[in-house]
Design a protein around this nucleic acid. Sequence first.
DNA 1: GCTTGACCTTGACGTAGCGTCAACTTCTAC
DNA 2: GTAGAAGTTGACGCTACGTCAAGGTCAAGC
Lengths: 253, 253
Amino acid sequence: MATQEWSIQEIARVAGTTSRTLRHYDDVGLLAPSRVGSNGYRYYDQRCLVRLQRILLLRELGLGLPAIADVLDGERDSAAALAVHLEWLCQERDRIERQIASVTTTLRKLEGGEQIMATEAFDGFDHTQYKDEVIERWGKDAWERGDNWWRSLSDKDKREFQQRQYDIAADFAAAHKQGKAADSDDVQAIAQRQYDWIAIGWQGKRPTADEFVGLGQLYVDDPRFTAHYDRHGEGTAAFIRDAMATYAERTLR
Amino acid sequence: MATQEWSIQEIARVAGTTSRTLRHYDDVGLLAPSRVGSNGYRYYDQRCLVRLQRILLLRELGLGLPAIADVLDGERDSAAALAVHLEWLCQERDRIERQIASVTTTLRKLEGGEQIMATEAFDGFDHTQYKDEVIERWGKDAWERGDNWWRSLSDKDKREFQQRQYDIAADFAAAHKQGKAADSDDVQAIAQRQYDWIAIGWQGKRPTADEFVGLGQLYVDDPRFTAHYDRHGEGTAAFIRDAMATYAERTLR
DNA sequence: GCTTGACCTTGACGTAGCGTCAACTTCTAC
DNA sequence: GTAGAAGTTGACGCTACGTCAAGGTCAAGC
């Protein structure tokens, strides 16, 4: 007979799902039983089975329940719904691919013995958060010059620029840890690299002695910079400030 | 000063997140403030900021909060955690890729005007050609019951009934191709569907263990059935027979 | 001293799609 | 009559917060 009926468990087994899922579909209005007994039991007929199979098919394709409802109730073309969903899936895939790439490079660095938390941290470096300070200290022209330059860089160049800074900071921290003095020749050599690095960012306009000293002081005064440098070891920011001050006095005046 | 402190909003801005997130990290024990004022206000110091930046870094890589806690508290190697996570990500990517492939082929079929679901079923299935065998094996009553039921179905219902069988057979073939064992859980789940499908055709008279085993054997012995099932791949009929025999022993006895 | 507004607190709901008890009733079979 | 299988509704759990809601705190201006 075409008027065949199944209990909730039976239809769940037949369709390859669970009774809980069917109750859920009933709750959200996606699939109501064809009949409900006076005892509250749910019973499903052929039409329900067909609808259920369609639901499960679309679910396997990854569609959400509201989208499935729209399709099955004819309020939305299935092709259109699937096309939208496909877009979604591709974005998700891309996102995951990017994460895989990030995790892979991080793992390689870890294997190479590098401390994590370094370059990557600077990766998400948002230079615009310093906009107001830069304008206040050095003027609007300086900001715009630097901003334009930064935007002109490729991702690779940006990373390399940051990597150089990371290496310099790491060397400062190592020297500090070894007990070297901020005015020692070794440390002053690092300060020289720091000066050159800044000159690059300033687009050739080499900092004056006062500007260089002020910048070093900023590393200590501004918590964002302090946190950044102290990541290499406590007191690194202050050590760098001292080294920069010495460099300014000895070399820039 | 190294003893600098920030309010919850300040540190959130510096680190590039929200105060809500910080409260959440406090709630789950991932990052407690360094100090809590008598008014209940949270205050964070340098160490907190460093830890927060590490948390956010790992989050960007997609790690979950418990995993991050394990890494930061030194209870787990960061390389190991990332390796596990990478495995995860790859599986996710594969899953999404498969969905993309499914959706794409479905879309192509829809564009080609094919009705979803109504695929290439049992072409030209003429059940009367099995009449003699059915009567011989299960009696005249069984035949007539099944015959009447089949005739009562609409074309649509017939197609759907066949479609289900087609899907089941395809799944058997896919499992076989993947090298899964006939007595594995996955394959037994398909055998369950096969059993339910037959029960529908038998109008609720569920096959006994012996009948189910005999039916499976028939798929190999009768060249018409063998050809039908082996269309999905060579050896599929024998594979199905084995799966059905195992199902009968385990579940029906 | 009072108002305004910015910032802080805890508490609780919502999210996607069910899995998983829990407590209780019904049906089926011996 | 009673066990056991199967049914019901309710409600919490999961991820990582976003988003009100209701109310306390603090600095600044009048």
